[in-house]
């Protein structure tokens, strides 16, 4: 097995905010209704977090569980632990209607950091960032592609599809250019 490579190999850009492509992270799409028996325990087994409520992301070190839709969760964990995570889900949700798939390789993940990180996102997403609560996961778009992001320390973590990683990096770089601060 070869070493997994993130879409952009960890590209970075330093403007008025810092842009870093990170990963690969392990990611599992889990589709199940919240009332499925054992769901909370299954999620806890994989991420060590509670089952996230609507639009929330529960973070636990390098693991997290995010609410994606009324019947979809995104579980984040170390890349190497995905197989174990899937096995745990299969075991805990055996017999319950659900779907769990590895999407680690289908995603690209970026960090936007610095005191003005919000200004980078404000140029790309139709989201009222001032009203984005800590621990809120917002699915929206970044210019012309789908993106999900949440505030994390002094900055944001943004997830996009892998195939458009180059485009997203281009957007973030353009938006973070020194001299184009919004305030």
């Amino acid at each position: 097995m070869s070493e997994p490579v993130s879409a952009l190999g960890g590209a970075t850009h330093q403007g008025f905010a810092t842009i870093r492509e990170i990963g690969p992270l392990g990611m599992i799409t889990l589709r199940a209704k919240p009332d499925v028996k054992g769901l909370a325990a299954a999620v806890k087994a994989v991420t060590g977090t509670a089952l996230p409520a609507q639009r929330r992301i529960e973070v636990n070190g390098d693991r997290a569980a995010g609410w994606m839709s009324p019947d979809e969760y995104l579980l984040i964990l170390p890349y190497a632990d995905v197989a174990a995570g899937l096995a745990a889900l299969a075991a805990k949700l055996k017999g319950e209607h659900h779907l769990a798939v590895d999407v680690s390789d289908a995603r690209a993940v970026f960090r936007i950091e610095g005191a003005k990180a919000d200004q980078v996102l404000a140029k790309l997403s139709p989201v009222d960032l001032a009203r984005l609560e800590p621990g809120e996961l917002r699915r929206s778009r970044a210019a012309q592609v789908a993106a999900a992001f949440w505030k994390d320390g002094e900055g944001y973590t943004l997830v996009s599809f892998r195939s458009v990683a180059g485009y997203v990096m281009g957007l973030l770089t353009h938006s973070a250019q020194t001299g184009s601060e919004l305030a």
Binding site: K123, A143, Q144, F161, S163, A165, G166, Y167, H174
Partner: peptide
């Protein structure tokens, strides 16, 4: 806006 040149449209790339 920013949609010119390289970021005119998203370009999807395979690995």
């Amino acid at each position: 806006g920013e949609s010119r040149g390289d970021i005119f449209q998203p370009l999807r790339r395979t690995p």
